[in-house]
């Protein structure tokens, strides 16, 4: 009797400990991650294709001096051209303002002027002392091309960024624009920079340089609410950029399940699409091959079992015949 009671007590204790472990491992992290944004990346290729390019409308609505290659790289003005990039690795980091200014915002052709004084890294970090939690994604990238891809990537070690906190977009934009004003007002500094409007700023980021975290719709909503602009809106996983006073076209950027841009669409005033980049999946070929091979193996095993069963049956029949 005492033993039974002791054993029951021990069982309850074990159940209690197990319960705590399950709570700790499964339930608590679920609550914790629900409040945060998470990286939803997966390593591997992302194929892109230019599905629509109407040059006439582009010239009228966007600019007649340059085409989409200005934003999306070589051959981005050829309908049917394919591009791709491989997501190779990613890691979390915390960086100062200068890292984002220099890597993402200051135009490449002017960047050398900011390596030395007066507006160098240490100056920027001292003046704009925010820190940003980022995700750094290493990719190898192939430019758009009409035929087969060359073996070597056009940019073997390119990078994409993630801003972990959607509120950081506002801080970064405000800091950058005040930095630009400061630089432009300095008569002794030979370089001038351009201010970014919210649309330009987000387009620069999401056209080629940046992804977002999941849940995507919540992240976009928080980012837009924080930026507080009429020119930027989101519906579900799609970001809508326009400048109602200046432009007569709209850019829509849709994000895929990994948080990287999956479709970039330019629409004119009438809502007609005149430029579109889409991403597509070729993973199905791998799964199809695997399924075929798997099915073949299963068929082979079933056949072997059937043959074995038939042989045993025949043997038993002949054994019975001999015995009778």
């Amino acid at each position: 009797m005492i033993n039974q009671r002791y054993s029951m007590k021990r069982n309850w204790r074990t159940l209690f400990i197990l319960g705590w472990i399950i709570m700790g491992l499964l339930i608590i992290p679920t609550f914790m991650t629900a409040a945060n944004y998470s990286v939803r990346l997966q390593k591997g290729k992302i194929n892109q294709k230019i599905t629509i390019y109407d040059k006439d409308i582009w010239d009228i609505t966007v600019n007649d001096t340059y085409g989409p290659e200005e934003f999306f790289g070589e051959n981005a003005n050829i309908t049917g051209a394919n591009g791709k990039y491989i997501v190779r690795s990613w890691y979390d980091d915390e960086v100062n303002t200068s890292a984002l200014f220099l890597n993402l915002l200051i135009p490449r052709e002017k960047i050398i002027a900011f390596f030395g004084p007066p507006y160098n890294q240490s100056y920027i970090d001292e003046k704009y002392n925010s820190t940003y939690k980022i995700g750094f994604i290493l990719i190898s990238k192939w430019n758009f091309i009409s035929g087969a891809f060359p073996e070597n990537a056009s940019f073997p070690n390119d990078a994409l960024y993630l801003l972990k906190n959607p509120e950081d977009f506002k801080t970064l934009l405000d800091d950058y624009n005040s930095f630009v004003d400061e630089v432009n007002n300095d008569l002794f500094f030979p370089i001038t920079l351009s201010n970014y409007s919210i649309k330009e700023f987000l387009f620069r980021f999401f056209s080629i340089q940046m992804g977002i975290l999941g849940p995507i719709d919540t992240y976009l909503t928080e980012m837009i609410d924080n930026l507080n602009s009429d020119n930027v809106s989101s519906i579900g996983n799609t970001l809508r950029l326009e400048e109602k006073d200046l432009d007569n076209y709209t850019i829509q950027i849709s994000f895929g399940k990994m948080g990287l841009p999956s479709t970039i669409t330019y629409l004119d005033e009438d809502g007609k699409v005149f430029y579109k980049i889409t991403t597509y999946d070729t993973e199905w070929t791998v799964w199809l091959t695997l399924s075929i091979v798997g099915a073949a193996i299963i068929a082979l095993v079933v056949y072997a079992f059937y043959k074995n069963w038939k042989r045993k049956k025949e043997f038993q029949t002949s054994l019975k015949r001999v015995q009778s």
Partner: peptide, 15 residues
Amino acid sequence: PYAFFPGNAMPEIQT
């Protein structure tokens, strides 16, 4: 090593 360790970089190209 690539699936479970995000920081473990994959090679640049297929070959």
